[in-house]
Design a binder for these strands. Sequence first.
DNA 1: TATCCGGGGTTTTTT
DNA 2: ACCCCGGATA
Length: 749
Amino acid sequence: MINLEELNQVQREAVEYNEGPQLVIAGAGSGKTRVLTYKIAYLLDVLGVEPNRILALTFTNKAAREMKERIGRLVSVDKTRYLWMGTFHSICARILRQEAQHLGLTRDFSIYDTTDSKSLIKRILKEKGLDEKIYKPALVLNKISTAKNRLCTPQTYGLVKSYIDQDRYDRTYDMPSVYQIYQTRLHEANAVDFDDLLMLMCQLLQNNAEARAYYQSIFKYILVDEYQDTNYAQYLIVKILAEPENLVSVVGDDAQSIYSFRGADIANILSFQKTYPNARVDKLEQNYRSTQCIVNLANSLIQHNQHQLYKSVFSKNAEGDRVSLQPYMSDRDEAQEVITQLMREHAVNKIGYNQIAVLYRTNAQSRAFEGELRKMGIPYRIYGGMSFYQRKEIKDAICYFRLAANPKDNEALQRIINLPARHIGDTTLRKLSECAQEHNVTLLEVAANPDTYNLSVVPMARKSLMEFAQFMAVRREEIETKDAYTFAQDTLRMSGVMTEALMDTTPEGQDRAENLNELLNAIREFVEQRTQMGIDFTPMSDFLGEVALLTDQDEHTDDPTQRVTLMTVHAAKGLEFPVVFIVGLEEDLFPSQYCVRSEDIEEERRLLYVAITRAMTRCYLSFARQRYKNGQLNFCNPSRFLKELDRNCIRQGSFATKKPETPVLPDVPERKRVFVPERPINLKPITATPTQTATSTAWQPNDRVYHKVFGDGTVLQVYNENEVDKIDINFDKVGKKTLMLTYAKLEKR
DNA sequence: TATCCGGGGTTTTTT
DNA sequence: ACCCCGGATA
């Protein structure tokens, strides 16, 4: 039986209100998860709601799993089994598989990850003869993703002014057609990408009255965690599913909205009460996590944001130590000294290594800390970067499974058809591709019957293709009959993937073999777990369904060893640590150099807010005066956010061993670094003629340029008209990137 | 067809 | 400092 006495007054009221739409604004560390957990337990236990009538949407699979466990402890474990709980993406995938036939897909559809999508886009660009310098695959994918998150189809893309304007600006005029082809190809491959999971779900709910009514009737109570990070598609899914009763309860903190780059729209939470005029609002303002000092510091920062819901987060915990703010000469220094201080925390304050986190803005920053930790023999764990399922050999293996499950999966086929080497090179693949296009069939189909489709390739390639197709046909049969583990094992052995890795005696080869074994282990565990749940047969398709949506947060969840955590601030969302180091607080890094608009800066500010509020007892902030970026040494200014922090919460020179530093705040010496000016640039455009052509290709002679000379004139940044290009000019050293302009000397003062 | 080499571009953050 | 691509070479 659940005990509501364990909640404070506000939390309790929030849990007990279940009669209509509800917005729970939950300040950092205010027991948000607790409220959600108890609320679901309350629905199950007190109101006697059937578990399968509850839909709970979380931000990560890990969050869902942990919440299930906690609810299981409050009520009974069997009940949690039938809850609809997971990320938007995984829940949508589950429903879409159910409804696949209404969408022109089969239930074995593949989910393309970012890599697959990008490689598909590259191929489309190549076919269309578009320049990849202008149509950067990542950019193109981003545009498509943004459109999809706003439910904009290829048909409507061309009607949206902002997209067209942006495309004119980027010179990607053919976006509508690229998007169209991309979508067609996905469909032909019986595949969807991440964003399709949401978009197709919306389309299903909007266009199919039967399905809509069905899912509306199933889900009586809907709960959404991290609502501030939902995008328009997600908003709409919730809105439609909740109708007509609107028993929807969302929890979030607008101050922690940090995923706009992924389409998240903070407006969703800001205007929740407009969507649901009779919504009840509960504010959780007491922070149970951090010391007063840390909470106050975070508050002082976030109050500089213009757009936010009013709330005042406070702590009744101990006042605590002041937050340390430390400048360092270089990124190397920073790493060394932070790790020294970290060791001191461990040795003097008896803080376990797993109680400490180093948080940074970009993954690239992990390297220095990693090296230092290794040197000192301190156990650590890096989150992010290349996750297990993104490693080459693992993806290769999974593509074998994918192709067996979905013979139309052309991306998977192209990835593995020559792995291990089967003498099927680019030429053969291109011909295969063209032939398949021409006859409107899958690649595998052509490979199986080259003669039927008049495929003209050399005999050796022809033989290899047919053998490969034959092999896959057998795999296709066995994927239904064998359980996931047996199937995986057989496939890896018979395909030669395992053999190849085992034959490779280089250290990397050993690694690959080991990783493949680890994959097999993971699959076996998956099967065993399902057996325990009473499912006696687990086919590979079940595993595939989950694996595409796993994140590295979801891997190795139980970690008995005491290890320091290294991760980006984004990855740290929702976590807490007694001791937190936040590093690299420099302009153009944190906030990122890519922030141009004031909204971007506000998001960066929220990001730092998230970082600070991860800390429970002690928090260290630091920045470096110079730092290597892309192999180049850069001088840095302290982050503007440092000036916004309440200095009463900050202690300086906290490292006793360091010589006292000159005061950092509020002013810092101006360096030769140039800021990217905000558009419109208040510099006059002039026409420039390059006397020496830059290696950069987007630059044309006689382009109109915007330019700026700084200080002593040593560094200059130039923009061409579309700001496609940024070119640094250094008058002292004429490096490889230097573009000499005839006017340049005239401008130098 | 596979592999090696060099140059150019590159990076925010991730379901 | 890396990664990816293209070109040259075996």
